[in-house]
């Protein structure tokens, strides 16, 4: 464990909790893509199946359980409890265009052709694009609530910190996982445009709105 991975994990945790609290406190999931949240729940479920087969550390297990629990709670709030506030008309990204290619790629490019390993690979690839429905929704409505942008910022920060973590691990531990690294780079690139808007607008106290 290095400082970049730890702060990356905590940043990820912050993102998840910010979103859950925002929805819970405002009793509204307006502006949030339910599809992205379902994809993230699928990501955590397929990746953390190793909770049942191997124990790594108390930290590792605790974080996995919290991530899974929070992601399902978020999905529950969006599609069940606060369904009336869900903005489905603007959440029109076709997720099958993500799931099908990502599933195919996981079968073709993986470390080991075993069910658990393929599901893990699937989750890595899927995570790299799971935010697209949310970004698509923002581009469609042309704006995002500031709290939603904080959520996205922490999610992107987590990816950037993980990239530094992998450089660190490569130099000091000789460890690298090509699948995770390539997917992580793709995922981080997807946030770049958003980061730019976040720094130039949100941090200067303006609302994030896109030109028409």
């Amino acid at each position: 464990m290095n400082i970049f991975r730890l702060t990356g994990d905590l940043s990820h945790l912050a993102a998840i909790i910010i979103l859950l609290l925002k929805i819970w406190k405002s009793r509204s999931c307006a502006g949030i893509s339910g599809k992205s949240q379902v994809l993230f729940a699928l990501v955590f479920t397929t990746r953390y199946l190793d909770l049942l087969t191997s124990f790594i550390s108390l930290y590792n297990t605790t974080m996995k359980v919290i991530y899974i629990g929070c992601s399902y709670a978020t999905v529950y709030l969006i599609y069940m409890k606060l369904k009336a506030t869900y903005d489905g008309n603007h959440d029109t990204f076709r997720v099958e265009f993500l799931i099908v290619p990502v599933g195919g790629l996981a079968f073709l490019v993986n470390h080991d052709f075993s069910p658990l390993e393929i599901l893990w690979t699937f989750s890595i690839y899927l995570e790299s694009v799971a935010i697209l429905p949310q970004l698509f929704m923002i581009s469609k409505t042309g704006e995002a609530e500031t709290i939603t942008t904080h959520y996205l910022f922490f999610l992107g920060l987590y990816r950037a910190l993980y990239l530094i973590n992998w450089i660190w691990r490569f130099y000091f531990e000789g460890f690298f996982d090509m699948i995770a690294i390539v997917a992580g780079v793709v995922q981080t690139i997807l946030y770049c445009d958003f980061f730019y808007l976040y720094v130039t607008k949100v941090l200067k106290g303006k609302k994030l709105s896109l030109p028409a």
Binding site: R5, D9, H12, D50, S54, I56, S57, N60, M63, K64, Y67, H111, D112, E117, W120, Y162, N165, F175, D177, A180
Partner: peptide
């Protein structure tokens, strides 16, 4: 033979 990397990351 493949060496499956340790899944210690989240």
């Amino acid at each position: 033979c493949h060496r499956t990397p340790a899944k210690d990351e989240l």
